[in-house]
């Protein structure tokens, strides 16, 4: 049973140059206890998707123009966040659905004590009195591995390191034991050793409370480590989705192949250049015609210019591996993956 089911979500931004569809028909679902990795380059719409769920985009510049975002409770109730009232949203935010943001340096209020910022969540959603909320917050800081948590409660954010602040953010998100945790690039701003600790923390929480996790990142290494399933976004759409192993071992979309190829790996031979995907992602202005990846695609067919590829099931039976691509020349695509000793002439 899925905690969250997004159907054909469309999110638009008004800009000087016209309306941009940052998210254009995204569907995905996350089951209880599942970690779904949402990957893509910057501008692909992955962050906008996660912010759309809690309606945290700056309205009215941004608006949800279509689709639904269904949040299911254990008892079977259903709430469409895309149409929820302000009061309904306020009840969900920070309680049933919590969010961890990318930059821990700027995501905590610099003017308030850590304790105040944590405790206000409990005061709001659990109706706790201040002393009880502070005590609970102290315990949560301890649980996320912050040394001397009693003292930290009285600190201001600038007195903490980046890793510590992200732990505080996570503690804040976990205070009400959310059913769904949205993590928008939670490790991007941190250095590698701390990244691993933060990921373990998220994973431990998932195991302890059975929370579902949507992990938004551009870092395939992070996804490979913790995600059960992966969805790859490109130009506002999910172009491929499937179990993590399948996505990395047997990708069906040339973009997924390109992503996998552009990741630095320890077994990459010395002196060999990483191969970026050539070109820039499009901006999604105006109506869509054909596949938006075709200009950067080495395997584009004539049909790609005319028809937007539909979603189709691929891979092993029952693996829920979906792809949007007209080409089925997967063998040729995968031949360019690292490890296969052939180097294509690709523009840097």
């Amino acid at each position: 049973m899925s905690v969250l089911e997004i159907r054909e979500l469309v999110t638009e931004f008004r800009t000087d140059d016209g309306v941009v569809r940052a998210v254009d028909g995204v569907s995905l679902s996350i089951a209880r206890g599942e970690v779904l990795g949402l990957v893509g380059e910057s501008g692909s719409g992955k962050s906008v998707t996660s912010l759309s769920i809690l309606r945290l985009l700056p309205e009215p510049a941004a608006r949800i123009a279509g689709g639904s975002i269904l949040l299911r409770s254990k008892s079977g109730g259903e709430l469409d966040l895309a149409r929820a009232t302000k009061a309904e949203l306020a009840r969900v935010r920070g309680d049933r659905v919590a969010m961890v943001f990318q930059d821990p340096m700027t995501s905590l209020n610099p003017y308030l004590r850590i304790g105040t910022q944590l405790a206000e969540v409990l005061e709001l959603h659990r109706g706790m009195a201040r002393p009880e909320a502070w005590e609970r917050s102290r315990a949560m800081l301890e649980a996320v591995g912050i040394p001397d948590p009693g003292r930290r409660l009285n600190d201001h954010p600038h007195q903490l390191s980046g890793g510590m602040r992200q732990r505080v953010m996570i503690a804040m998100a976990l205070l009400c034991e959310p059913e769904l945790l949205l993590a928008d690039e939670p490790t991007t701003a941190l250095d590698v050793t701390i990244q691993a600790q933060i990921l373990e923390l998220v994973d431990a929480q998932r195991q302890r409370t059975g929370a579902a996790v949507l992990l938004v990142t551009h870092d395939l290494g992070v996804v490979a480590r913790v995600a059960d399933r992966v969805a790859v976004m490109y130009a506002g759409r999910i172009v491929e989705e499937g179990p993590t192993e399948a996505i990395f071992a047997e990708p069906f979309h040339p973009y997924t192949v390109g992503l996998a190829r552009s990741v630095p790996r320890l077994d990459t031979p010395r002196g060999r250049r990483l191969e970026p995907i050539r070109g820039m992602p499009p901006r999604n202005l105006g109506p869509r015609r054909g596949c938006s990846f075709r200009a950067r695609c080495d395997f584009a067919l004539e049909v790609c210019a005319e028809l937007d590829p539909e979603r189709r099931a691929v891979g092993a039976e029952g693996s829920r591996h979906l792809v949007r691509c007209h080409s089925d020349d997967v063998a040729k695509m995968r031949a360019t993956l690292p490890g296969v000793a052939r180097r294509l002439e690709v523009l840097p």
Binding site: F13, T15, V20, S42, G43, S44, G45, S47, V48, L51
Partner: peptide
Amino acid sequence: MNEPTTKPA
């Protein structure tokens, strides 16, 4: 939030 408003230089 740098996503949809990313513009060319």
